[in-house]
Nucleic acid binder design. Structure first.
Lengths: 145, 145
DNA sequence: AGTGAAAAAGCCATGTC
DNA sequence: GACATGGCTTTTTCACT
């Protein structure tokens, strides 16, 4: 936990809604000067609460129409770091979550079509000592903000 | 699929790395004029490839230290839209994915601690005609870029 | 921490090639 | 799409509280 007060949280919320909002815009909303808002945002970046600015992309419109989560189960000796390292090398892999219990990891992938999905799953299986996989095909997604 | 050429894709990649990059910066990298880059980025927003700008936040540092995925299984008659509508009302829910097959949905949640997780799961169960849940507790996460 | 003001940088519309 | 110009907005810094 970090010392982020109520105003810091409001600034973060505002920037999550629109990462390009201007300092003067936010200053007007939270009731501080532009310089004060800038210093707070800079500080939030320095202490690592804000880790970066980015764009949200509709991957469907770029031809990556299929999204899936693949659950991975490993042979007993596999180390967590190796799991993440090998899976994250695939460009189709969007996120890797290591899990307590069963399964051992959950991999979020984005692919062009189901044939492509098959390829990626095969590559995941080949990457380590995988005991088994189960893939959840995403039909629809809702994400906050 | 949309008509986004190689330069468009490079611009998207650049903006994913840093959503605050200036047009002149990108113009220098891709070898176009500032005005041309601006027109392309505007167009990518208009056609919905770029859906918004935002900040990446380290939720751990804000006291939301526990992340989990909860698989939901429904009674036969539940409609997908209702699932998403009810789950997305909880502020702890970060994303809802509807799934082909078993389970019916995968819900990504972020909570303060495991006691809080218990509450959220209970609320998810109460929200619809849930036949069962299984929660995957995240130990570590890797996300692209 | 916050304020206010001035300099520097970036944005954006317009016109021309 | 390139290039140039000018007006406007935003960012960034600095001295002061």
């Amino acid at each position: 936990m970090t010392d982020a007060d109520e105003i810091d949280r409001r600034l973060i919320t505002l920037l999550r809604e629109d990462g390009r909002r201007t300092y003067s815009d936010m200053a007007g909303i939270v009731g501080l000067s532009v310089a004060a808002v800038k210093r707070r945002v800079n500080r939030l970046q320095e202490i690592g609460v804000i880790t970066g600015f980015t764009v949200q992309v509709d991957h469907t419109k770029l031809g990556w129409g299929v999204e899936a989560f693949t659950e991975l189960r490993y042979a007993g000796t596999t180390r967590v770091a190796d799991i993440v390292a090998s899976a994250s090398l695939l460009p189709e892999v969007h996120a890797v979550y290591t899990i307590a219990g069963d399964p051992d990891a959950l991999v979020q992938v984005r692919v062009r079509d189901v044939a492509h999905l098959q390829q990626v799953i095969d590559q995941l299986r080949a990457a380590g000592s995988i005991a088994g996989t189960k893939t959840l095909l995403v039909l629809g997604a809702w994400t906050r903000s």
